Amino acid sequence: MDSDISSHFLSLTKIPQTLTHIKNLKNLYYYGNLELLNKPKVAIIGTRNPNPYAQNFTQTIAQKLSKHGIVIVSGGALGTDIIAHANALPNTIMISPASLDYIYPKSNTHIISKIYKQGLVLSQFAPHYVPRRYSFLERNKIVISLGEYVIIPQADLQSGSMQSANYALSLQKKIFVPPHHIGQSLGTQSLAKNNQAKVIWEIDSFVNAICAQVFKSFTKDSTKNYNKNASASSDAVLEFCKGNPFFEDAFLRFGEVLFEYELEGKIRRNNGRLEVL
């Protein structure tokens, strides 16, 4: 650990509102850019052994969300976590299962050091704390709680990622997963099959929808105008889309309301055209 970094750990004066429901969370230590806590955030979690498809998906979606100013929250673990962090820098927050003077896992030291210097690292554990089994569960609670949405690129049925998914569902968080081949990523396939997660069929349309959704919650004036317009045009949107118009034509007429409808699963794009679900 860089001596300059390890000598400047600080404790938050107040626990963020999104974390106050975690009963045993009494303190948070941090190093890095605290302004990231004030930006829209999406949590990305998943297996430590992602297949090439999931690796590419994680890299692409983390890059695109970060470029739109959305902060990626994850746990710094091998596999999915560290891929998400690396491709979201500097818009990334890592939640550590150890104290901030102890980089874990060591094999991710190169990227985690960059997160310390360019992003933000948080831990609920006081200095000299080495991770134990339960500290990973506590870390995952913070990761899930900070994200407005949760993306799981790949997960097995009996895994820590699925435990985190259940925690997200208990908080009524929306979960998103990519489609996989039959027999792969049985955890995320199960979430999609049971309507506990929505499938990301197209990354760009998903990113547009997420951006429209999360940024309106961070801008009060735009939220009021957005809701007013959405309410006034809701029936008209669905009626128009029943004719299978091109997305571009519908966008010229209704604007960002379309992204909201896509995110809620009311409409979808199919070969450039919109259809009602």
Results as ranks from 00 to 15, higher is better:
E264H: 02
S7Y: 02
N24Y: 10
V130N: 14
E239M: 01
H181A: 15
V214M: 00
V214G: 01
E260Y: 03
A84T: 04
S3V: 13
K14W: 01
K242G: 10
W201D: 13
L25E: 10
S164Y: 02
F254K: 03
K114D: 07
N225A: 12
I83Q: 01
T60P: 01
L169H: 07
V207H: 07
I142L: 12
F251S: 06
Q55P: 00
F254D: 04
L137Y: 08
I44E: 00
S7N: 15
G147N: 11
Q196E: 15
L252Q: 14
I44K: 03
P178M: 09
I95K: 03
L157P: 02
I45T: 06
D81W: 03
R269T: 09
P179H: 14
L34E: 11
S217Q: 14
L12C: 07
L36E: 06
E260N: 07
F215W: 14
K39G: 00
L78I: 13
L171P: 03
T223F: 12
F251C: 09
L12I: 09
V177N: 12
P131D: 03
T47P: 01
K64N: 13
A43I: 09
N24L: 03
D101C: 14
I115S: 10
V207N: 06
I72Y: 05
P127H: 11
T18L: 12
A62Y: 01
K228H: 04
K67C: 05
E262I: 08
S164L: 08
K39N: 10
T223S: 14
K198E: 07
R273V: 12
V42N: 02
S222V: 14
S222L: 11
K220M: 11
P97G: 07
S3C: 08
F136A: 11
K117H: 11
I5Y: 07
D249Q: 15
P245M: 10
P50N: 08
A62M: 09
A54L: 04
A165E: 00
S161Y: 00
C211E: 07
Y226S: 13
